[in-house]
Design a protein around this nucleic acid. Structure first.
Lengths: 334, 334
DNA sequence: GTGAAAGCGCTAACAC
DNA sequence: GTGTTAGCGCTTTCAC
């Protein structure tokens, strides 16, 4: 199939390409009669505007990049995919499209993907950085497009950032467990060094301190964020450390923890209470239904898009960090 | 920040833009000395090639579109997101990028999104069509890029198609239930008319027939694919129709069904056996762990990409329908 | 072994 | 109200 260009339309409608362009973009007045001719020619030729040429000329692609750290495991992706979904929705309403890209939680892959984005393809980037604390993103992110960081706070404030205050939800969860009389509360987390993990552990410590409980290192288990680690950490905490309550600081380890308790027929919450992280439908089907700290992922995506579009439209406001509240959802497991 | 173009690099390196281009793309011989000069200039200027200009000129964007029908509910997306993940992975290995787009399971939104793609932006499209049986995609999909259909078979074979033979897994599941002595097997499904649902229902009927069980319409519940429908259908089947086994034909209704059984403390599988659809980590945490029909979503994404890239590279083979096998994973719930 | 220059399809400044 | 035309940054043909 041959490609129809604006020139073809212009010829057929007996007008100039400028007129065709202005009809399409409604960017200057065109007489009704002329418009009609142009529309007719477009229809007859089945004209499809070439968005690449348009982007080149207008220096605007209407495409937004999203770079998230998905790992192979089936479940850890839910959170970011949920965000992606929210972002996609809001972008569409604003006439933008989404390029989804995956850093696989690997810094060098992330840098490669950023290089792809730097080649003038996108109007803006939303990124959940792999290594927000040690790595300096200023060096890589020097494409001439605005950037919004999500979920993890970069060490320097060089862009707008949207975070979830997961500390607050964690703090409430731990306090709830304490109020129910638990003194040995196990804390299971993925690797430290990303802001979300650090924040949750800090909230755990604070809650203990403010309630006159001493911090016991043996109750804190740190390892890769996997189902199996969630499982084995819970086993250790319950069997060896004598924990009567478990807090899991991410969704996949939550599942591993629940799995262990159900497998051993340990009564929840009578023998061991548990509070998990992230709220998904599947948590409703455990028995009893799981209490969780819920993160507003959709809202985070939405907020990120709003900030990004504001920047694309030229805002020069000082960079801002937005914190969305996390919420403690109390169900039967504690 | 000013934009550095190839011209700047050429000037700095005292060569022509042609040479710079050939150095970057390794598309004709360039003397080592010259190459070095060019690389040096690129580095010093921090040159980022403009992929939009490249696409315009070379008529190749290295971008693939993916159009999937996600709906708002948190869980129904897992399947397609899992596919997206697989696709993204394989594309990256081949130097392509992914534009993710969402039809929201709505035909008119889908057509709008296809129009966006038709504007010469993408080199190929992978689509899980909303309405594969009634709607004729030939009319919309006339961009000059190859297309691969996934998950749902379009009524006419106008493109390569990758499907999962979910009928085979369903058949095995129903036969297993029959072999355990069940004669009243409830079947819960989302709306018919999409090939996957139709295929699963047909397999159910076939399994009954081949085992000399009569088909009882009151055991088949058809409705929107939601958690709550899965819940209420199961309730009706167990309380009113007297079903002793449940087969749920998609993942979200599976969850609703399990939720009902656990809520009512109905012993699984002693009182009611259940087999669900799609295999995710969270199914391991139900008690007992759920038996499911597992779909190879990653493999489907991978196969779709392979077919698409073959077409992009000019293959003129006749269109092909690939069927990937589904698998019955037997755990404790039946 | 390298350069000059046309042109991909569009937008927008300038002209009338 | 509309047309002419330069040029976005790159690839590629033709020339030497």
């Amino acid at each position: 199939m041959e490609n129809i260009s604006m020139k073809d339309v212009a010829q057929k409608a007996k007008v100039s390409t400028a007129t065709v362009s202005h009809v399409i973009n409604e960017t200057r007045y065109v007489a009704e009669e002329t418009k009609k001719k142009v529309y007719k020619a477009m229809k007859e030729l089945d004209y499809q505007p070439n968005s690449v040429a348009r982007s080149l000329r207008s220096r605007k692609s209407n495409i937004i990049g999203l770079l998230v750290p998905l790992v192979a495991s089936d479940t850890s992706n839910f959170f970011f995919m949920s965000i992606a979904n929210g972002i996609e929705q809001v972008l569409k309403e604003n006439g933008y499209n989404l390029i989804l890209s995956n850093s696989s939680e690997d810094l060098s892959i992330e840098q490669d993907q950023i290089k792809v984005f730097n080649s003038q393809l996108i109007d803006g980037l939303i990124i959940a950085p792999v290594d927000s604390q040690k790595h300096d993103y200023k060096e890589n992110l020097r494409g001439n497009y605005p950037v919004v960081f999500i979920d993890r706070q970069p060490k320097e404030l060089t862009s707008d950032t949207v975070l979830i205050d997961s500390g607050a939800g964690t703090y409430k969860a731990i306090e709830l467990l304490i109020s129910k009389g638990h003194t040995k509360i196990g804390f299971i987390t993925g690797p430290l060094g990303i802001t979300t993990s650090d924040e949750r552990l800090q909230a755990y410590k604070n809650a203990l301190k403010n309630n006159n409980l001493s911090y016991d290192e043996s109750l804190v288990k740190i390892g890769s964020a996997t189902f199996d680690k969630g499982h084995s950490f819970t086993k250790e905490l319950v069997e060896e450390t004598g924990a009567t309550a478990i807090f899991a600081a991410n969704n996949i380890m939550t599942m591993g923890a629940v799995h262990y308790l159900q497998e051993k027929d340990i009564p929840i919450p009578d023998k061991v209470a548990i509070i998990g992280f992230d709220d998904y439908d599947w948590l409703r089907i455990t028995s009893p239904p799981l209490s969780v700290v819920k993160q507003p992922s959709y809202e985070m995506g939405k907020k990120a898009v709003e900030l990004l579009i504001k920047r694309i439209n030229g805002s020069k406001d000082p960079y801002d960090v937005h914190r969305l509240p996390s919420e403690l959802v109390v169900r039967g497991s504690c």
